[in-house]
Design a protein around this nucleic acid. Structure first.
Length: 576
DNA sequence: GCCGTTTTCGGCCCGACTGTTTTCAGTCG
């Protein structure tokens, strides 16, 4: 009997183990090994509990060796991690939670526990408020205040990552603000923002110029800043009113490319690059590539990659998921761009829950240079959205015919976002679906069915020959709703077999499929559509967010259906 | 504890900043 422990829970166990080992002052490399394993597990798309059930060899996974593979099996098979139980006899395992307080590391946690038996945030708050933390050597009044502040931040949920689209306005404001500082040459936002991850933990801004201090002074003068965490000549950290943390780093122009590379990451990508440097008896750091003391490259990212025998890697691919091998072979994919997109296959109007009329949506799509726009209002199941029954849908088709007669250059496609009902039925009859150009099938209700039922539900729906596009497949909403529990491998294989197109929904709250799942879909041979799921004219501009995720999945233009002409699209959407 | 076309032992990133220190440990990224 296997326990259905999620990958996230398993990763959390290893993180906790690493924290406790660190508090016990264990070998730091052993600690790191557990943290690396946790990272691998968090980013893994198949479930470990399934892999264990299939008796798969886990040691092929990065950072997973014999020992940790055995411990994963233990967690899946018994629900326990005995190493954690064992260490918990010496150190209370809650101490791991204290490590999340900013400014408090393993040494501090240990000292607080030894002196005052501090085991919880509550304990720490009490001792700090009594002003007794400073009794410990190495702690003082400032540290005490910083810890109280850290507790407050943690309680306010400061750990949550910010959605990329929410961080964008703040990031761009800061970027142009810094660009106007004295002597500034270049400013780039690096980190996961530049890699276009769906969320960002903080913003990393790299600046080159002749006067680092002037940049930092200007940073501190920005109106969005709530608090300064640290402030140096080349590096500062601030917190914005929104709670977003911003790290600004200044370098000389000759190091800008190296710093940009370094702070764009990912960490794993950088580790690989550094290893390539070491193989050549060189050193790569945020200042440049060096042979001994002699700089070889540093001003431009391209130069650094070139000297390491690599083609420049688009930031979206820098996750050490095979991109370095492709780069070495000069075989990187030419990633899809927002300019490649020629139409939109999922949009709503005032007929259901959209905010703009059919005609306004059509004109707006036309203005954006699109060749086609599929009108896919909700089917009848989604009553709260005023979903269309067969009768209203046929009336809408008439309106679309009349509009198409007037439109020049843009063709409106007749469509519907059909609901996949609880057992895999669709919420409109086949004879109506047969009259449509585009049928997007999505799940909106019964999100909490078990994995087996959920999988069967989708597979059964896919048996309907009118099922053309699988809309927002996991129904997740970032920071708000977990994905449905479903065997995505099987469903994507089924989609590939049947010629069903899989959606990357470009709504910033959805981005569903997410990057790793989109990559999986490509590996399974699926074609993708990047859809805005627009509920207004303004939403049509969300396309770029979906393109970002497609790029992270390594998608070329050819793999995205709506980069094709109208004739291409008609051919690639399966005809029953 | 993981990893391996210089390998199965000996590596594993390291620099910036803070606070509490009179020269550095801890934390962070």
């Amino acid at each position: 009997m296997t326990h259905t422990t999620s990958n996230r829970e398993i990763a959390a166990q290893f993180e906790r183990l690493a924290d406790l080992l660190e508090i016990e002052d264990e070998n730091p490399f052993r600690v790191r090994a557990y943290r690396n394993a946790a990272r691998t597990i968090e980013g893994l798309s198949p479930r470990l509990s399934d892999l264990v059930a299939d008796d798969a060899d886990l040691t092929g996974l990065p950072a997973i060796g014999r020992e940790i593979a055995a411990r994963i099996r233990e967690i899946v098979l018994t629900g326990r991690l005995s190493a954690l139980d064992e260490i918990a006899r010496r150190v209370p395992s809650e101490l791991s939670d204290l490590m999340k307080v900013r400014g408090l590391g393993p040494k501090g946690v240990k000292a607080l526990y030894d002196h005052f038996h501090v085991r919880s945030l509550h304990d720490l708050e009490r001792v700090a408020k009594q002003g007794r933390v400073r009794e410990i050597e190495g702690f003082g009044a400032k540290k005490e205040a910083a810890l109280l502040d850290g507790i407050g931040r943690l309680r306010r949920g400061g750990e949550r990552r910010t959605r990329l689209a929410d961080a964008e306005p703040e990031a761009e404001r800061l970027k142009s603000w810094l660009a106007a500082a004295d002597g500034v040459q270049r400013v780039e936002i690096a980190g996961s923002y530049r890699r276009r991850r769906e969320t960002v933990g903080d913003l990393d801004i790299v600046v080159s110029g002749t006067d680092g201090a002037a940049v930092m002074d200007r940073l501190l003068a920005h109106e969005d800043i709530e608090r300064v965490v640290s402030h140096g000549e080349t590096r500062s950290t601030v917190i914005l009113h929104s709670g977003l943390q911003v790290d600004v780093r200044t370098v000389e122009a000759d190091s800008f490319g190296a710093a940009l590379l370094y702070f764009t990451g990912s960490k794993e990508h950088n580790v690989e690059l550094r290893q390539r440097a070491i193989d050549r008896h060189w050193k790569l750091n945020e200042y440049g590539l060096f042979n001994g003391e002699r700089p070889i490259a540093g001003r431009e990212e391209q130069d650094l990659y070139a000297r390491l025998g690599l083609a420049w890697v688009p930031p979206e691919l820098r996750e050490n998921h095979g991109e370095i091998e492709l780069s070495a072979a000069d075989d990187l994919p030419t990633l899809v761009t927002v300019d490649d997109v020629r139409g939109n296959l999922h949009a709503h109007t005032t007929w259901s829950d959209g905010g703009d009329t059919l005609e306004d949506m059509a004109r707006a799509a036309q203005a954006r240079g699109y060749a086609y726009l599929a009108v896919t209002d909700h089917g009848p199941k989604v009553r709260v959205a005023n979903g269309l029954d067969a009768r209203r849908l046929r009336r809408q088709m008439g309106d679309i015919d009349r509009l198409n007669a007037q439109l020049d250059g843009l063709v409106l496609l007749k469509g519907c976002e059909v609901d996949i009902l609880q057992h895999g039925e669709l919420d409109l009859p086949d004879d109506v679906l047969a009259e449509l150009d585009v049928v997007v099938c999505s799940i909106h209700y019964n999100l909490r069915q078990g994995r087996e039922a959920q999988t069967e539900r989708v597979l059964r729906a896919m048996d309907n020959p009118h099922f053309m596009i699988w809309g927002h497949p996991t129904a997740r909403e970032i920071n708000r709703r977990e994905p449905i529990d479903i065997d995505l491998d099987r469903c994507l294989e089924a989609a590939a077999e049947r010629g069903i197109v899989v959606e990357i929904n470009a709504q910033p709250k959805r981005l569903d499929l997410k990057d790793t799942h989109a990559r999986l879909a490509l590996e399974k041979g699926c074609a993708l559509a990047i859809d805005t799921d627009a509920h207004s004219v303004a939403d049509l501009d969300l396309m770029r967010h979906g393109v970002d995720q497609a790029r992270r999945a390594g998608a070329t233009r050819e793999r995205i259906v709506n980069t094709g002409s109208l004739a291409d699209v008609r051919r690639r959407l399966r005809a029953p």
